[in-house]
Structure formats: C-alpha cells, structure tokens
Amino acid sequence: MKIVVLLKQTFDTEEKIDIADGRIEEYGVKFVINPYDEFALEEALRLKEANDAEVIAITAGPERSSIALRTALALGVDQAILVSETEQLDHSYHIAALLAETIRPLKPDLILAGLFAIDSGSGSVALQVAELLDLPHASAAVKLQLGTADELALEQAPWNGQLALVERDVEGDSEIVLLPLPALITAQQGLNEPRYPSLPGIMKAKKKAIIERFPADLLNEPLQASIASSATVRTAITPPPARQTGRLLQGSSEQQTKELLHILQQLNLVESEES
C-alpha cells in the first residue's frame, strides 16, 4: 500500500502577524508543519506501522519548506518530495496542479491531507488535488479504517476491493462515510495524537535525500492555461480592525451580574423587562 501525505509549512499558531510593505513579515518567525497536516502525517505513519505501507510526504513551496519535510522524514516517512515554487503560493489551483502532477505517476492508494492550512484557511488545495486526479474524497476525518468490505465487517458495499470507512466531523455532528480507494481524505483535529520526532529519527533524517521537482517539468500547456483562467490576485492586506478598550464591571458578583444583564438588554440580546 502506498500513501501520499500532503504537507504545508505554516507559521506557528502562537506567532503574531506583522504587515510591512503590503506583505506579511516572515523574518524571525517560527515555522511548523500545518497542525492539521500533522494529523494526516500521524495517521499515515500509523497505517504504515499496521499495514506495512510506504509513506511519501509531498510539499510545494519555497526552500524553507524542506525543513517540514526533514521533520516528516525524522518521524518516519519513507520519501520526501519538495516541489520548488516561490510564485503564486496563494493560488490554490496552481499549487493543486503541481501536487496532482507530482502524485499522478506515484499511483497512491490513499492521499492524506489536513482539513485546511491555518494560514490561508481556504481548505481548497487538497480537494482540488482530488478533483484533478478524479478521486473521491472524505473531509474532516476523526476516525479512519481501511480494508475490504469483509475486513470492515460490512454486509455489503457497492464496490469491490479496498475501502475507506471514515467517521467525519460535520459541524459538530458526525457522519460515517464509505468510499472506495484510491481516495483522498482530510484530517480533522481528534483523528489522533501526533508524535514527536525521536533523536535517532532526527539523526537518520539528516542523511536522507529530499527529492526535488520543478514546475516547468510538471505543468503542460493546458494546465498552464487553466492556472491563468483560475487566477485571483491579492490587492490589499490589512491588520484586523482594532477593538476599543473595554470596561471592567465593578462591585459584588451580584452587582456585576445585574449590570451584565442590563448590558445584554441594551444590546437587544436579551428581552427587556418592560417588553
């Protein structure tokens, strides 16, 4: 079994965002593997341990992204591929096309990715990869089982061969979905508890090669035309609107509560006594 994990390197969640000259300052920022991608990576490693799978981590981005791949190697992935790209990193179709063309010849049984990246937050690249590769997907998985209908103890299934039985989070409710492999599945928080790299793992990873791929070799003319037709452009970037300094309510708990209630009534969030 072959599993591809899609990774993105993002700012650490505790980083503040500084905007200078119309762009986000990256200098001195701590980078991590996107937290949702960590769940995907952990799930791939667990499947590898249980089923003897081969795991390939792929990212598209600038040179610094290789640090994320190095971490993935330290955690136990078998192969790491960096698609070197410094342009149009926020153009989801562009990145999806690069990833899809990198994945296509690998013919994986399963592609795992995070539900969304905590920076751009669109949650679009992985699903666009699925569409470009014509694969079914299930998103926001909190539990994943693979196997034949027999192995999954299903009485019947509309497909033969390997299946994925996915419990997914749908706005707080959960849904059980069945789909045939190959498929793409995105990971939601709660899928697993990601491990930390071990020291021997880190040492071994230093010696492993990271395979590089280049956009010019991956994108044919029709794809380039599609990338142009699907382009969007950033025209401005701003900090969030500042909030005015608030007010602390004074007095005993009872007095504070009464005042709070009065505030809620003034805001029309709670019925007033008069009405």
Partner: peptide, 14 residues
Amino acid sequence: LYAGKAFETRSFTG
C-alpha cells in the same frame, strides 16, 4: 488570513 490575524482583499483576474 491566519484565522483573522490579518485580512486580505482579492479579485478575480481569470
């Protein structure tokens, strides 16, 4: 962006 730590404005060009 970053869940609201910043905001961007985008337009379609295609």
